[in-house]
Design a protein around this nucleic acid. Structure first.
Length: 596
RNA sequence: GACUUGGUAGCUCAGCUGGAUAGAGCAUCAGCCUUCUAAGCUGAGGGUCAUUGGUUCGAAUCCAAUCCAGGUCACCA
């Protein structure tokens, strides 16, 4: 149990016995004591004043007295300043904590809860390569999945691939017309980039054709409809739905190129999935549900035969669920897939990592599922994240300001290589070790940069800032880890960590204590990150821990500590810091090097 | 227009279930490498927490209104 929890319980018990009144944790607040005051944790007394009709000083004195008396192994002294009861936690409490947990690489992780969750993320389209926005999505989804696991949940990572539809046909037509049979092999191009290039080509040609038609006197609408390349694309979609062999073959071939490209990227960035859905398999799902919905009178049919749901009573609009020609729309297959997920995997919760532009759509989806009486419909959770913008504004494909994922990854790795070479600290590494190190640092910097911001918020990607490896960055944290490891190697060899059960007689120094207090908070940070589905909680935690440790590190020597007891204490402290840094960074998919 | 999210230092972001003098990184300035890795550390300057009003012993935090910015409101996905 965390120290804050223990204090909470202690205060509750003390209040009950002192005043014969029952309180709840919400009746008072516990904060970490501000550095300018003496003490470690603070109980804010104001909120108790009214109900107890006593002065803050009186309450504080009685409460402080009782706590120190009843829990001598935890609290050693207290002081009261202006309604704040500051308690000092016993050195022994911290030392015991260190002794017990310094070598535990699972510190903070929770036992299995039995809860089963699916996290869907990534959701790429097979007509263009991944970009910066996908990276935020991937890192977020992956990290949230790991955070849930660390909190004892069973997680299935899933991905829905958007592999069909008019946009896919666009790149297919353009390839057919202009590629002369070019393949990834013949052009030495990554498959997803090759296909993406023809998607761009489509748009260029389309624009030209529309302009030409308008010059001939057509209206804009007519021109957009009549442009030959668009007509051909629409015909191709019809052919695809009918399963016309040559179209299917082209579709399969081009998709296979894209998948090969995606695989390379996913492998590089460390994204993986337990289950992949393909829209070409799921787009017909949900059709029978439409009929059920009609029977249940959740849906209604309009005169033209289209089927709708009326959500106006819930403050939303009417929404179509099936076209008049009987074909299903986007939301229909989403309903079908949502149901399938629950049925196939028997999950308790379904998390969708999708951009906030789809907030309305996801609200509608959940509401429809509820109205249909689907089990667990209330456990559909949209993890809505903000867009990534550039310092110059939004990414726009038309203006060529899309930041390509592969290029960005390469650039980050190149930067880490350059910096590593300049610093020249790992000259004895083999070529293989070096390559691995550049990956660790470059990818670590990128993931940290994208995960350190609250997912809900729109964030700005600044290229110069992203390749700065100082301050609030992944490499800073990695560096702290490497420095600790270097000490541990020197002091302990490659053997076990220090596990001496010395009695530490000298009091903890402020910086020693500051580090241990933060170590103690890791389990709480894990819980918060889980509840909020928010990896930035971990990023901030791990950064602050590293910063505190670095202050300690420059001020006090570990190898040449004042006494042998101090040396062992500090070795434990360093080891535990390294373990937690490693564990926290792992939750974000970031590796930490032994040296850098 | 309706719904929705946001507005905190020059920039990027924490803090938001109300508590002590609002924090961090970058940038700027001044220092610290013959002792465990300087990708580090110490310090300085920099704020009308969008505005106005309300609730409260106490408001960046809660409520209301206003201003500004983003998103959505498709028989697109």
């Amino acid at each position: 149990m965390s120290i804050v929890n223990q204090l909470q319980i202690g205060v509750l018990k003390s209040l009950a016995s002192l005043y014969e009144q029952t309180f709840s944790e919400k009746d008072f607040q516990i904060n970490q004591t501000k550095p300018e005051f003496e003490g470690d944790y603070t109980v804010v007394l104001f909120s108790l004043v009214k109900t107890l009709r006593l002065s803050p000083d009186a309450i504080g004195n009685q409460l402080g007295e009782k706590l120190v008396n009843d829990y001598p192994e935890i609290f050693t002294s207290f002081n009261i300043i202006k309604g704040f009861l500051n308690l000092t936690v016993a050195d022994n409490y911290w030392i015991t904590l260190l002794n017990k947990n310094h070598a535990d690489i699972c510190y903070g992780k929770k036992a299995l809860t039995g809860k089963k969750v699916m996290v869907e993320y990534s959701s790429p389209n097979t007509n263009k390569p991944l970009h910066l926005g996908h990276l935020r999505n991937n890192f977020l989804g992956w990290s949230v999945a790991e955070i849930l696991k660390a909190n004892g949940q069973e997680v299935i990572k899933s991905c829905i691939v958007n592999d069909r539809g008019i946009h896919i046909c666009k790149s297919m037509i353009a390839w057919q017309w202009y590629a002369n049979g070019a393949t990834p092999q013949s052009t030495n191009t990554k498959g997803d980039h090759l296909v993406g290039a023809y998607y761009v080509k489509f748009n260029d040609v389309y624009k030209e054709q529309v302009a030409a038609l308008m010059a001939d006197g057509n209206t804009k609408e007519a021109a957009e409809k009549e442009a030959p390349i668009m007509k051909a694309t629409q015909q191709m979609l019809v052919d695809w739905e009918e399963g016309k062999p040559e179209v299917m073959e082209l579709w399969k071939t081009m998709n296979s190129w894209v998948y090969a490209g995606f695989d390379t990227t996913y492998q590089k960035i460390g994204s993986d999935f337990d289950k992949t859905y393909y829209e070409s398999n799921t787009y017909l799902l949900g059709k029978d549900i439409v009929q059920q919905g009609l029977d249940k009178k959740v849906f209604f049919k309009k005169e033209d035969g289209s089927i709708w749901i009326d959500l106006t009573a819930d403050g939303l609009d009417e929404k179509i669920v099936q076209r008049k020609d009987g074909t299903s729309v986007y939301i229909t297959q989403d309903i079908g897939l949502a149901l399938q997920k629950y049925e196939q995997f028997n999950i308790d919760q379904s998390i969708y990592v999708i951009g906030n532009e789809q907030n309305y759509h996801m609200k509608v989806l959940q509401l429809i599922c509820k109205k249909l009486g689907m089990p667990n419909a209330e456990n559909i959770f949209h993890l809505s994240y903000g867009m990534v913008e550039l310092t110059s504004g939004k990414m726009k494909s038309r203006e060529g300001t899309i930041v390509d994922a592969d290029e960005l990854v390469d650039e980050m790795i190149a930067t880490s290589q350059k910096l590593t070479e300049e610093l020249g600290k790992v000259k004895d590494f083999t070529a293989e070790e070096l390559k691995d190190l550049y990956d660790i640092i470059g990818l670590g910097a990128m993931k940290f940069y994208l995960l350190r911001v609250d997912p809900k918020k729109t964030m700005v990607f600044n290229p110069e800032e992203s390749i700065d490896f100082h301050g609030f960055t992944g490499p800073f944290v990695q560096y702290t880890h490497a420095r600790i490891k270097s000490i541990l190697r020197k002091e302990l060899g490659n053997g076990e960590s220090s596990n001496s059960t010395n009695e530490f007689k000298s009091p903890l120094l402020p910086l020693e204590k500051a580090v241990i207090i933060q170590l103690e908070q890791y389990p709480t940070a894990l819980e918060v990150a889980c509840e909020e589905h928010n990896p930035s909680v971990i990023a901030n935690y791990v950064f602050n821990l590293a910063k505190t440790f670095n202050s300690f590190y420059t001020e006090h020597s570990i190898g040449n500590a004042e006494t042998i007891e101090k040396k062992y204490l500090r070795l434990q402290l360093a080891a535990m810091t390294a373990n937690i840094i490693k564990s926290g960074m792992q939750l974000m998919g970031i590796r930490v090097p032994e040296r850098m």
